[in-house]
Design a protein around this nucleic acid. Structure first.
Lengths: 179, 179
DNA sequence: AACCATCACTTGAACTTTCAAGTTACGCCC
DNA sequence: GGGCGTAACTTGAAAGTTCAAGTGATGGTT
């Protein structure tokens, strides 16, 4: 988590420098710091909750969820990476770990020999079944239960906008589908 | 990033099980997934931006910002960890790295021999001065520029609530100040 | 003044993520 | 039908994070 310098003064800068960066106003800073605090606290909280109850970090759990919802409980690696907004490399490592746990199995794609399917095993399904209620409860308790319906809707709209803004354009190194 | 099972059906569960977990409604799920997508995309985006332009991840940058804003550009380790919502362990490792870079220096606390100050060096200050404008621009571009004033305000309120909800209570293992 | 629970911080190992560099397969163009 | 640019995925090492255990101080208590 992090923020920005509070003011130009804190960096011994004249109020307007050459490129005249537009620093965040006090109010913008409050919003930004609240955002950073909330997101890191929530992610940490859910990571611990799932590590404790399901033996895996939040993202790994999310991978299993993607699979359980997919047609034959299987998804191409790239598809899965795309859905979860992570790199293929990260996914490879993650699936390797989940495979060791016996929760996911790899299968070759018949039509494209480069391709691989990640398939949810029965054990993987069982883990989800066992731990999903606790996880939903945690999410409700930390987020939805604290917000009014209006706030929930607003949050949805805002996050939608931010996600879309980051998705299609530029994007870094190994996220080609974000180009 | 991750989500929750879409429906009870996807897990072969009767709509109301023993403990009758309250699954997320379709709308709640849309909100939750948008949240997860937006937060991971944004965090990744800023991590890459700062790694490229400042040679450090987002959190490390945040640590320097905390220091530059502190009274004598120094903060006790525990204080710093508290401000950034991270564990002391993580902070120890991070400061060790920043120390190697010459951006932070440790100093003993005179009044408490257990205590340590993390102090921002001139070089550390210089890195901030050089990279802050680019970082503010990135945050503006990804977040503030896309939201209306009302949305910005709403986001601030929501994040404030969530952060407060996660802060005082329970909390995990090594975050004693969150108790 | 010795005891001891607690505090402030560190350490090392295990695990996860990132980054750059592979490998193999596809498809198309000539 | 042999190149060749690209796609799909993996790999290994470096960097970062987590977890549990460890080291000294500190501040009562007895």
């Amino acid at each position: 988590m992090s923020t920005l310098p509070t003011s130009a003064a804190a960096l011994d800068r004249p109020p307007q420098s050459a490129e005249a960066p537009r620093w965040l106003s006090d109010e913008e800073q409050r919003v930004w710091r609240a955002y950073l605090h909330a997101t890191t606290l929530l992610e940490d909280h859910l990571d611990r909750q799932l590590q404790r109850d399901a033996g895996m970090p939040h993202i790994y759990y999310g991978l299993l969820v993607q699979l359980v919802e997919a047609p034959r409980r299987r998804l191409r690696m790239t598809e899965l990476a795309k859905n979860m907004k992570i790199t293929r490399s990260r996914l490879s490592h993650a699936v390797a770990r989940l495979e060791k746990n016996g929760w996911v199995r790899r299968e070759d794609c018949p039509s494209d020999k480069r391709g691989q399917f990640a398939v949810l095993t029965d054990e993987g399904n069982e883990v989800l079944r066992r731990t999903a209620p606790g996880h939903v409860a945690a999410v409700r308790h930390a987020l939805f239960d604290r917000l009014t319906p209006e706030q929930q809707q607003s949050l949805g709209e805002i996050m939608q906008i931010v996600a879309e803004g980051l998705q299609p354009q530029d994007a870094g190194a190994d996220l080609p589908w974000l180009r």
